[in-house]
Simulated scan of single mutants.
Amino acid sequence: MIVATTLAENKYFLGLSALLNSMVANGKYIDKIVVGYREELPNWIPALSPSKNGLSCVLNSGIELELIEMNGDLHMVHEKPKWFRYFTDVLEPDADEYFFFDSDIVIVNRMNFFGEWVRQGVAICEDVNYSMNRNHPIRKQWIKFANEEGLNVKSEIDWYYNSGFLGWTKNTKSFLSDWEKCFEILAKRSGDMKQFRVNNRTHPVLSANQDSLNLAAMITALPVSTIGPEAMGFKSGMRLMSHPIGPKPWNKNYIGDFLKGYQPRVSDLHYWESINGSEFAPESAILVSYKKFICKLLRGLGRFYQRNGSS
């Protein structure tokens, strides 16, 4: 069985719609998706029935959707290590392959590649700011913190990874324990965990969840298989996902941004192309057509009028 998970609250449910529609459009592959959520569920989700752990339904594609209300008051990104352990060990202990996608990601390539990838090792992507060599002073501090807690570095790494995607199997799921240990170490040094970020990169911890993922990749004995920032669309190359940096597509004022010299991003267009699809259609067809038209028009005009490049 192949399962995936994501986390959603507030307007990120719109991202969930685009994510699931894009998964199916690119070959389905997964059997079930489990959504950890907060706040009210949107009214465009199909009728749900009680399940063992929450609420569920079967989507048009045959994928089972299960929604489970989350406890805890940390910022949602800092819930990831604990949620992944719960998802793997309690909710879906018999699955063969596991995937996590941030709920603002859109899939833009064949889904079965993710299965080919995760069978090579724990699957991770490099971040947009992907360069952090093994001699970097921040990385040296992480090593010191780990050593103080009895953890030893097994791999010297020169790249920084993004926690918006992770893939693992029943044979590599102990990586989640490595991550949770590292998270506990860095969380003590991160500041207010109810915020996305407190410090800047000159501090030992910028983002407890993402920094600890990177430390886990250094201390784990498991095989890790990584792809560069192109996997998330942060640079040209083998794009597998479209992951917007900064303002989310559903919040952007495209015309206002364009007048300031910023054209719509490729990730904006991918979002509007996926928001309505075979599984969900939360937005009106008129609005979606308008947004796609505006994105394409302004990207075309942006060849002549822009402040900088877009991702």
Score class of each variant (00 low, 15 high):
Val77Trp: 04
Glu79Ser: 13
Trp83His: 07
Arg85Tyr: 03
Tyr86Thr: 05
Val90Glu: 15
Val90Cys: 02
Leu91Pro: 02
Glu92Asn: 13
Asp94Tyr: 14
Asp94Leu: 11
Glu97Lys: 11
Phe99Met: 09
Phe99Cys: 04
Asp102Tyr: 09
Asp102Ser: 07
Ser103Cys: 14
Ser103His: 08
Ile105Phe: 10
Ile107Ser: 10
Ile107Asp: 01
Val108Leu: 05
Asn112Val: 13
Phe114Lys: 03
Glu116Gly: 06
Val122Asn: 08
Cys125Asp: 05
Cys125Phe: 15
Glu126Tyr: 04
Val128Cys: 01
Ser131Gly: 00
Asn133Cys: 00
Arg134Tyr: 04
Asn135His: 15
Ile138Phe: 04
Arg139Phe: 01
Ile143Gly: 00
Ile143Asp: 01
Phe145His: 07
Glu149Lys: 15
Leu151Ile: 07
Lys154Pro: 00
Lys154Ile: 03
Ser155Gly: 00
Ser155Arg: 15
Asp158Tyr: 04
Trp159Ile: 00
Tyr160Gln: 04
Ser163Glu: 05
Gly164His: 07
Phe165Tyr: 13
Phe165Gln: 09
Phe165Glu: 03
Phe175Trp: 12
Phe175Thr: 02
Ser177Pro: 00
Ser177Arg: 13
Ser177Cys: 08
Ser177Ile: 12
Trp179Ile: 11
Lys181Leu: 12
Lys181Trp: 10
Lys181Asp: 12
Cys182Tyr: 07
Phe183His: 07
Glu184Asp: 14
Glu184Met: 02
